[in-house]
Structures are given as C-alpha cells and as structure tokens.
Amino acid sequence: MNNKYIPLAATIFVFMALFGFGSAQFDSFFSMRVFTNLFTDNAFLAITAIGMTFVILSGGIDLSVGSMIACVGVATAVLIEHYQLHPLVVFPIILICATLFGSFMGFLIEKYDLPPFIVTLAGMFFLRGLSFVISIESIPITHSFYDSIADFYIPLPGNGSLTVSTLILLTVLAGAVYIAHYTRIGRNIYAVGGNEQSAALLGVPVGRTKLFVYSANSFLAALAGIVFTFYTFSGYSLAAMGLELDAIASVVIGGTLLSGGVGYVVGTIFGVLIQGVIQTIISFDGTLNSWWTKIFIGLLLFIFISLQRLISSGLLLKWWPSDKKPLVN
C-alpha cells in the first residue's frame, strides 16, 4: 500500500471499528437507520468540513465558519419571517453575500500577505457580532417550504432515509471530489499547499487559487448554515459556537496534513462520521456524559497527528516498503 493512503485507511478503519463496537454493545445500533441518521445529523458539519479541507489543503485555515453558520441562520430567519421572502429567493442572496465575504477575506490574505489565522479570526468576530446585531433572540422559521423539506425523503431498506440535508451533502461531496482530483483548480490547490514558492515558479496562479479557496469555503459554510436551519427550524445567533474546531478536527482525523498539500475530501467525511458515531454511542449508552465526546475527540486528534508525524518522519518507511516515495515532507 502506498504510504500516502495510510492515514485515510486508518480513518476508515477507526470508523468501522467504532461502528462495530457500537453494534456489539447495543441491540438496535447496527441498522440502516442509525447509519443514515449519522449523515442527517452531521450534514452541516460535513459540508463545512469539506470546505475546510480545501482551505487546509492550500496551507491556510478558516476560523470564521462557525460564526458564518450562525449568521446565515439568523439572516435567513429574518428575511423569511420578517420580510416575508420565499426561502428560494433568500438562499441565493445569502449564498452570494457569503461568497463575497469569503473572497474579501481571501483578498486580504492574498494581496497583503496577512496571516489567514488572524484575518479569519476577525471574520469570525465580525460575523458573530453581525448575527448579534441582527437578532439576539432565536427566531423560529415557520414557512411552509420548510415543512415540505422536512417531510421529503427517499426511503432506504431497513428504515433508512435519505433526507434533503443528506442529498445536499452527497452532491457537495461529489462536486468536491471532482474539483479536487479532476480539475486544474484542484491540482493548483494541492500545489499551492505543497509549496507555495515552487507552485508560483511553476506558473500556478497562487493568488487566484487562494481567492477561490476562501470564497468556496465561505460559500460552503453558508450552505451548511442553510442546511442547519433545515435541521433546527430556526436562526440563533449563538448557534454553532466552536464549530470551526469540530470542522478542523474532522479534517485532521480524516488524514489531511495541516501543513497543506496532502489529504483527501473523502477522509474528511469519515472524520465527521467518526465524531458522529462517538456521539451516537454516548447517547445510546446514556450513562456517559457529553463531555466524554470532547475528551475522545481530543484523544483521536492526538493519535492521528502522531500517526501523521510518524509517517512523515519516514520511520514507517523502514517497515513499509513502497514503490513510491511518500508525498509528505
């Protein structure tokens, strides 16, 4: 097996092991319903994490996604409830504004060479503040369109169901995999993350690539915010606190190197599913408290990061002969 697939394989293995553990432990765990619910419950996190994967692949980071989800939720709720706009009119407006916001952050990062950490931190403050300014109260969404979205699903055998959120997630996933592996912009993102200077010398449009990455990420975060309103039927300015960390953790557990240039979108999905399975196991158990989720995720982060270090330091090469040199540096 090629070295670069080890983190991805480890992630998938951990997911299956956790799911197997849950199935062995609890009676009704091993079912299509539990499996498809993982997607429905974590669709918003998965969509954000896919965007975050691209940002991290390009060697950057985006801390603003959690606030973006809250802000989109509040703005959507206000536009639908107070201004009586149809959701299908609201969504494009929100998505366009979010994408412009993302490209502005990308512009600051690219043009003035500011650290992504600080720029997106400011973005996080700004968006959270904006959602507070729009409304401090939680606004319920009562539009009939939302009811029809909640009622729609494609039934699967074994009580499983593909909800609208899941369908959106799967579409985004397909698009992301296509962009990452079959387009020029995808290759450019990997190149910029691998080594920005080399990429620039080879004629990769570094600036444009970064702009694309941050715009796309804000677009996806906004989409996740819309999916989140499908899930909660409301907009709340305190929603999704700290979600950016869950997204980053998913990306890391999914085997993407935080130094950029190496990783897979599919791994991120499994990173999200692992967090989802841990939560499901804890809720099935009933005696474990919710803070164990945080401790487990911290532990998993530690294991995966150590594994990555082990691989990139070349120690594994001795025991794991591969025909290709690993791409990690």
């Binding site: 408290n289 995720i297 911290g298």
Partner: peptide
C-alpha cells in the same frame, strides 16, 4: 513530536474543556 504548535495546542483546546467538565 515536532507537531505544528497550532495543531498541538488544538488537541488540548478541544479535550481540555472536557477534562475541566469531568
């Protein structure tokens, strides 16, 4: 372990609150 500081400290940032709640 030579882990990037931003990631190394992210671990405790996530797990630390869980430990405090414990």
């Amino acid at each position: 372990l030579g882990i990037q500081p931003i990631i190394a400290t992210l671990i405790l940032m996530v797990a630390g609150r869980g430990i405090a709640q414990l």
